[in-house]
Computed example of a mutant assay.
Amino acid sequence: MPTQLQPAAPAREVTERLSPTPRGARLARRLARYHLDGWGIPYDSELSNAAEAIVAELAANAVTHGRVPGRDFELRLTLHADTLRVEVSDTRAERRPPQEPEPPEPDAESGRGLVIVAALAVEWGVAGRPVGKTVWAELSLVAQHT
């Protein structure tokens, strides 16, 4: 039977600008967990863990494939009544991820990030912006219990 987690407020949003470095990507992941916990989504809950994994993958892609020296990337989290939206924006519009990521070869050292995002998210996509692009993913706050 589906149950709904109760966030601390019906709608919340936070935006953080971070350096396009591995350190910035790690900070994005930590900030996501911190803000989610403050919104009533506890550390180590299924939703917090899924959101952390999505932020980690999207932030890593932003600093690896979307990096422009001297320009930050942006993390935005938006919590609505039944949805958590994760957005990571960078300034490289020409480097768009594939619509449907394919799993890499078993011995490949990279290429799993968007496969993980697609598996965890209810929906995900890419949106253009005046400078660059935003890769977004949505998670449902409705947890399924079997």
Rank of each mutant, 00 (worst) to 15 (best):
87 E>K: 09
71 R>K: 14
55 V>M: 02
93 A>N: 06
52 E>G: 14
58 L>P: 02
44 D>F: 10
85 R>V: 02
54 I>H: 04
82 D>K: 10
56 A>W: 07
91 T>R: 11
51 A>V: 08
118 A>F: 08
98 P>E: 13
93 A>C: 08
112 R>V: 01
88 V>C: 11
79 L>A: 10
41 I>W: 05
42 P>W: 04
90 D>P: 01
58 L>A: 05
115 V>M: 00
93 A>Y: 07
73 F>Y: 06
115 V>E: 01
42 P>I: 09
114 L>S: 00
72 D>C: 09
70 G>K: 01
115 V>L: 01
48 S>E: 12
48 S>W: 06
95 R>N: 13
50 A>K: 15
112 R>K: 09
100 E>V: 12
64 T>P: 09
54 I>F: 07
101 P>K: 04
62 A>T: 09
123 E>F: 02
100 E>I: 08
97 P>S: 11
71 R>N: 11
75 L>N: 03
108 A>P: 04
53 A>W: 04
87 E>C: 10
47 L>T: 13
64 T>V: 12
98 P>V: 07
71 R>E: 15
85 R>A: 08
41 I>F: 05
68 V>T: 14
61 N>F: 09
47 L>W: 05
63 V>H: 11
49 N>H: 13
93 A>I: 14
96 R>Q: 15
47 L>N: 08
108 A>Y: 10
61 N>K: 06
65 H>W: 14
63 V>A: 02
118 A>M: 00
115 V>P: 00
71 R>L: 15
102 E>D: 09
65 H>R: 09
